[in-house]
Design a protein around this nucleic acid. Structure first.
Length: 569
RNA sequence: CGGAGUGUAGCGCAGUCUGGUAGCGCACCUGGUUUGGGACCAGGGGGUCGAAGGUUCGAGUCCUUUCACUCCGACCA
């Protein structure tokens, strides 16, 4: 393509709200344009990259035997009510009515639609397994869209769904998708890691996320420095923690006056006891379907932190929200002096596994200025769940390595769903014995538009984008230094048509601009390879620039074509 | 949802306190000079000052309402 014919509005200035490199450069280099909160237009360059990422995904999925379909974007609300997700998904669902006053949502994901489609067309186990996918715009009304393409409201996603007749079949599908996804992200040139994950609003049993490692990532992931263990903090486990500090010597269990001693630190200092022996009690309001809510106390060791997603899952709630002072008071709770015992019946208490059979503990007495000393959990019937946020330095649950935190961008997520949706939506097939059974499903997503951001987060410098080979909008960027010089123009044009005739995607900068202007645009746009046709043409040479590292070499003009072909192969 | 802030040319901003002809930089158009690191000179186009209502002789500026966008937070107990 010729620069003079392409819409590439590059600019020196970035929008003031852009903080991430990917956001800044994709805007500045004219890939995308903002149209509203979390909404973007893809300009020609952006569309080319999007198509490339989509193509890589499609090729690998088709290779793995998946079939592409395209389901209606507007989906009837009835399906969402049937699956129970209408409430669970909450405000992220964009709802609206048509002229006949029927309710619809814009699809944020398509489990319901796909199950519905398959249940109408697949009747027999002989038709299984089957794996269907689509690459389609999705809409989620995010609480707070930000970071450009990273967290938009409208975005392009590949969503796939597998249907099997047995659990083994489902697991085989899942494993195949894990391999396929690995191939896709590898081809896109990404440094990624597969981590164990929470299933979130999708539901289901096992799930894994594909995380692109980047400091700007929104997710915290926990990785082992010794083995392959890696998990999202929302699902990360750790080896049991022992405490080096001595257990406090407590002769009798009793209330103890602790005026103005409210925090774990204060308590620890006041009693000269390691926080390990203190109970931290976190109060939350849990929201359920139908507007129901319950007060829940999560008890964990003072040395640990609560992981909210785990906490939410532990009580099967839709969401956890903070409790305001009024609600605390009504529940008979005192901030700073909360404890898991002596509570009204309506309050649910969940203990962290780390407290199992704990003794000689200190906790709030649920009374202003008093703590309870010598709390003993041995032989007491309580609910234990894994609630803690794994911290850097904790032991790996798989080996004796140490865990550490790092940041990642979630670009893929694969789930084993089992029969969650097929049961709810009564999607069944007849097995070998003529018996009706719900499909064993898996669901698999890739954030196609988010990948553009992820690729740039991982591949950029202070001058602009550096695309990877398969994602780049063009393979080669030819810069004609001064189009007024006939020989430069001719040589540039000739190289351009030679490359094009070999099927190579070339961007030719034929604008009537100065050299500096053009080279800055090349650096901003980030095509991996550039050829400068300029002043050293008089010595019969051209310059090849590698965008990553900006290495330059002069090559005899007659050898340039071969050199480029060699590098691209 | 809670808190803070911003809406003025395509983009980035000043002007608002103290009411009196709508400004700057970049970008854009014309002509000329320049041509290897975002050039220079001259000329030019472009605005319901987010919207609605009010106060006033007069409102970008003051008052009321509203909409949109952005940022921070959603922790501890």
């Amino acid at each position: 393509m010729r620069f003079t014919q392409l819409l590439i509005p590059t600019s020196k200035e970035a929008p003031s709200d852009a903080v991430l490199a990917s956001h800044i450069y994709l805007m500045r280099a004219g890939y995308i344009q903002s149209v509203g909160s979390g909404l973007y237009n893809f300009l020609p360059l952006g569309k080319r990259v999007l198509d490339n990422v989509r193509r890589v995904a499609k090729e690998e999925l088709d290779r793995a035997g998946c079939q592409e379909v395209d389901l209606s974007f507007v989906t009837p609300v009835s399906l969402w009510k049937e699956s129970g997700r209408f409430e669970k998904y909450g405000k992220e669902l964009l709802r609206f009515k048509d002229r006949k006053n029927n309710d619809f949502v814009l699809g944020p994901t398509h489990e319901e639609m796909m199950v519905n489609m398959v249940s109408q067309t697949v009747r027999s186990y002989k038709q299984l397994p089957i794996n269907l996918y689509q690459i389609k715009t999705k809409f989620r009304d995010e609480i707070r869209p930000r970071f450009g393409l990273m967290r938009g409201r409208e975005f392009l996603m590949k969503d796939g769904y597998s249907f099997a007749s047995s659990e083994d079949g489902m697991k085989a599908d899942f494993d195949l998708m894990e391999k396929t996804y690995s191939r896709i992200f590898k081809r896109l040139g990404l440094n990624y890691r597969i981590v164990e994950a929470d299933s979130g609003a999708i539901g289901g049993s096992a799930s894994k996320e594909f995380m692109v490692i980047a400091d700007s990532g929104e997710d915290t992931i926990v990785i082992c420095d010794n083995c392959e263990y890696a998990a999202n903090i929302e699902a990360a486990k750790r080896a049991m923690v022992a405490c080096d500090a001595d257990e406090p010597e407590i002769s009798i269990s009793s209330k103890f006056q602790t005026i103005d001693i409210k925090s774990i630190d204060d308590l620890s200092a006041f009693f000269h006891v390691d926080p390990y022996y203190l109970i931290k009690t976190v109060a939350k309001k849990a929201l359920y379907d139908g507007g129901e809510s319950k007060i829940v106390l999560f008890a964990l060791r003072g040395s640990d932190e609560l992981e909210e997603t785990k906490a939410c899952n532990s009580i099967d709630a839709n969401e956890l929200v903070d409790i305001n002072e009024e609600e605390l008071r009504i529940a008979g709770l005192v901030a700073g002096y909360m404890g898991p015992s002596n509570l009204s019946e309506e309050i649910i208490v969940v203990y962290d596994e780390g407290l199992r059979d704990g003794r000689s503990l200190i906790c709030g007495a649920n009374e202003e200025n008093y703590h309870f000393v010598g709390y003993d959990l041995r032989g007491v019937e309580v609910t234990y769940k894994d609630l803690v946020a794994v911290q850097s330095g904790d032991g790996c649950p798989k080996c004796n390595g140490k865990l550490k935190h790092t940041k990642g961008i979630e670009v893929g997520h694969i789930f084993q769903l089992g029969t969650k949706y097929s049961s709810a939506l009564k999607a069944e097939f007849l097995d070998e014995n003529g018996k009706s059974k719900p499909f064993m499903m898996g669901t698999y997503g890739i954030g196609i538009s988010r990948l553009l951001a992820a690729i740039i987060e991982q591949n950029h410098d202070d001058r602009g984008c550096i695309w990877t080979k398969e994602s780049s909008p063009f393979a080669v960027h030819i810069i004609i230094s001064n189009i007024k010089k006939e020989e430069e123009l001719e040589a540039g044009e000739e190289l351009y048509s030679d490359l094009r005739s070999r099927g190579i995607e070339v961007l030719l900068d034929d604008r009537k601009e100065r050299f500096g202007f053009k080279i800055k645009d090349f650096e901003l746009i980030g095509v991996p390879l550039a050829v400068v046709v300029g002043k050293n043409l008089t010595d019969g040479k051209m310059e090849i620039i590698t965008r990553d590292g900006l290495d330059k070499v002069e090559i005899k003009s007659s050898d340039v074509l071969d050199e480029i072909l060699r590098r691209l192969s």
